[in-house]
Amino acid sequence: MFQSPVMFAGKVHWLGWENLDFVLTLDLGKDVSAREISWSTLSDQRSWILHPEKVACAVSADGGAYREIGASPAAGDHRGEEPIRVFPEEQSSVCGLTGGFSCCTLKNRVNDRWRVSMNESDAEEDLAFVRRIIEESRKILIDNGLNYILWGILIALGLIFVYFKDVRQWPLRSDLFWLGWGIFGTVLTIWIGRKTRAGLRASSFSGRMLKTLWAAAAISMVLIGFFGFLTEAIRVWAFPAVFSIILGLAYFLCALLYDRAWIRLLAVAWWLGGVAMFFWKSPETLLLFGAMMAAFQVVPGIALYLRYGKERTAETDD
């Protein structure tokens, strides 16, 4: 239709050619780094406008000797074409010498081969990009805090119950009570786990380590509680102190996984509470342990849960 380039008026401007190959030469004035080279073509068969048969990209250091660095053939018979195509469909296929090198400066012929240089600032930019992405993915939620809340409440209520049971001498064995209470908590944990798993779209090593850590801590406490009580190797008032020390250890490692300093402070609080209970040697240690559960387990659990909700909203908004 057109013997020479024509600029169409409208929202988007297009150039049209007929019977001519279009060659666009860009004189950049100096060596530059280019990450991507792309262009769009239009197809509107009713107006006899078709995509090009081939799009190629060539570079030159002196404006004389050009070397093709890539080409995107537009295969097909033009039927059912998208109205607008972007070439190349995969950026790196054109921009790179061997199919994937998109951040490059192409310059200077050396021994009949193109020497490719990578700009220092490009490398820094790429490294910063990688660091940002890794940092973001590292922060991907590893826990929603619900188990902290659940077990904190269950244990605190259990401790209050056992304290009053012992003080008022209700005819119920503590070990059987804790066994039943523990099974109830485990069932609830599994149920919550199944419910929340459906919403997770990524899993992290940190998440798995966290689960393993808490499973190990729970097993340790159950073994100490069961066999310590059965063999009477540990005095009843000492159990909360021992459990506090184990929880301190668990929270200290958690701080590493969550990368949160305030969780490390929780570990210190558990350790200090444990030491205090060793010296106290009284049935009231059960109540102190219950209060610590509320303060150092339920409250942090709520904080983690709120953070989880906030980050999920941020993910959706992205």
């Binding site: 010498l97 994937g100 951040c103 490719v116 790429d126 990009f129 993915s137 990524a202 090593f205």
Partner: peptide, 30 residues
């Protein structure tokens, strides 16, 4: 500008989208 041997660059990762995908998955199991 520092000359750099392009053969040392993994062209498969160097694409911005692929680099981002790999960087995201580095910190995750799946």
């Amino acid at each position: 500008m520092i000359d750099f041997n392009y053969q040392n660059i993994d062209h498969l990762i160097h694409s911005r989208v692929r680099l981002a995908v790999v960087a995201v998955l580095v910190g995750l199991e799946e």
